[in-house]
Computed example of a mutant assay.
Amino acid sequence: HRYGFDGVAQVAADSGIRACLSKKVMDIATYATQDNAMPMGLRETREESLLTTLDMFDRWHGKADGRIRVGFGPRTPGGVSPELYREMVSEARVRGMGITMHLAEVEADRQFLRQTYQMSPVEFARSVGLVGPDVVLVHMVWLDDDDIRILAETGTNVSHNPSSNSKLASGVCPVPRLLAAGVNVALGCDGGPSNNTYDLLAEMKLAALVHKAVSLDPTVVPAETVLEMATINGARALRWDHEIGSLEVGKKADLVVVDLGRSGLAPGLNPVSALVYSATGADVDSVMVDGRWLVRHGHLLTIDEERAVAQARERAGRLYAATGIDPGPRWPVL
């Protein structure tokens, strides 16, 4: 989260959720091959981004009974100088902070790195220290065989975001090849602007389908693999798999209850298949985090949902008005 970090962390603490929060790090306003791609209001200096993240780490890491972790979220190459990347990695390793960065999302990312540094995306990441078990690289669409080999050799994690990659026409992450090489692949939703929802159950279905279509092989990325990507692989990517990510004796009581008795999931003889191919977030009955119910029988217990929705609509309306953007459809709305 670039801005309002304190507010985000406070909401995470008050709502009872578990959160790994990262602050953007940047010192350049470009995006891949596009100069001055960042609006002035979104730009930050090294001091504003790096030092603020360290301040947020001291303030929030380990708070809320250990449910909140704070890491670095540097911008993609082109938005951060190699020197700042290395400084950030050094600070992260001293403190045991995780790092999450978007990389090789679009073809322009790969072209930029080849033209500017004569390196592939993962070669560049390795050159500045952005590989290893404490690093999650997001998207990873435009990779070659050497990139995948480096990821596997260094134990670097990948976050697959198929809905975002599809909506933005970025391409398809080579998940079957990554898995075959032994890379830990987790599942993500990217963000609201490039996905429209944070429904991880819906994301599972697309992750299970898209690689079958691309490879012309209906057996690749089976439902069981996708469920692991959404659970234990994600926990492993965050180095939290010793406490969460699976239901085992000694782990935290973090769980989601899905109502498989709903007609849309019938007959549900294979619960894993029903969950991956048929369920959505609307089928979630209850959610528990650290032994505490946050959602029970479809009702949020720690957030005023009606008030939150109303605030989101009002503030989104003001944002669109300020930018002069009309978010409506091409047809008249009755």
Results as ranks from 00 to 15, higher is better:
186 A>Q: 12
221 V>F: 01
176 P>E: 08
183 V>G: 01
202 A>F: 15
187 L>Q: 08
133 P>D: 14
211 H>K: 05
135 V>D: 03
185 V>D: 04
157 N>E: 05
173 C>N: 08
170 S>P: 01
169 A>R: 02
194 S>D: 01
192 G>H: 13
104 A>W: 10
208 A>Q: 09
214 V>S: 12
156 T>Y: 12
128 V>C: 06
193 P>W: 00
158 V>L: 07
206 L>V: 12
208 A>E: 06
179 L>Y: 06
148 I>C: 03
107 E>L: 14
136 V>R: 14
222 P>T: 00
153 E>D: 13
160 H>R: 08
180 A>Q: 11
156 T>A: 06
211 H>A: 00
113 L>R: 02
192 G>F: 13
162 P>L: 02
150 I>A: 07
119 M>N: 07
181 A>I: 00
190 D>K: 01
217 D>K: 10
137 L>I: 05
188 G>V: 05
124 F>D: 02
165 N>Q: 00
187 L>E: 09
184 N>C: 13
104 A>M: 11
103 L>Y: 01
114 R>F: 04
124 F>A: 07
100 T>V: 11
210 V>K: 00
176 P>G: 10
196 N>I: 14
180 A>R: 03
200 L>H: 08
101 M>Y: 07
176 P>W: 04
127 S>V: 13
101 M>A: 08
166 S>K: 05
224 E>G: 14
125 A>Y: 02
152 A>I: 10
149 R>F: 13
144 D>R: 05
181 A>Y: 02
139 H>W: 00
122 V>Q: 03
103 L>R: 04
139 H>A: 01
213 A>P: 03
206 L>P: 11
136 V>G: 04
103 L>C: 06
192 G>A: 15
195 N>L: 01
138 V>K: 04
141 V>H: 02
216 L>D: 10
203 E>R: 02
107 E>P: 07
173 C>L: 06
162 P>G: 04
215 S>C: 14
116 T>N: 05
135 V>N: 03
143 L>V: 10
219 T>R: 13
200 L>V: 15
168 L>A: 03
126 R>E: 12
193 P>F: 07
165 N>Y: 01
112 F>V: 03
133 P>K: 13
216 L>M: 15
209 L>Q: 12
192 G>R: 14
100 T>D: 15
184 N>R: 13
119 M>K: 15
184 N>G: 06
126 R>D: 13
174 P>R: 08
159 S>L: 13
190 D>E: 06
149 R>V: 11
144 D>I: 13
115 Q>L: 00
109 D>S: 07
201 L>G: 11
204 M>N: 05
214 V>H: 12
226 V>G: 11
212 K>L: 00
160 H>E: 04
213 A>D: 02
112 F>H: 00
177 R>P: 03
171 G>N: 08
171 G>D: 10
220 V>Y: 10
150 I>W: 07
225 T>V: 15
123 E>A: 15
213 A>L: 10
176 P>L: 06
150 I>K: 01
214 V>Y: 07
226 V>Q: 10
106 V>E: 12
157 N>C: 05
216 L>A: 14
194 S>R: 08
152 A>F: 12
148 I>P: 04
160 H>T: 11
136 V>D: 11
109 D>V: 01
125 A>N: 00
154 T>V: 02
165 N>D: 07
144 D>C: 15
151 L>E: 13
187 L>T: 10
128 V>T: 08
202 A>Y: 14
144 D>P: 14
122 V>S: 03
107 E>A: 15
141 V>K: 02
225 T>W: 09
168 L>W: 00
177 R>G: 05
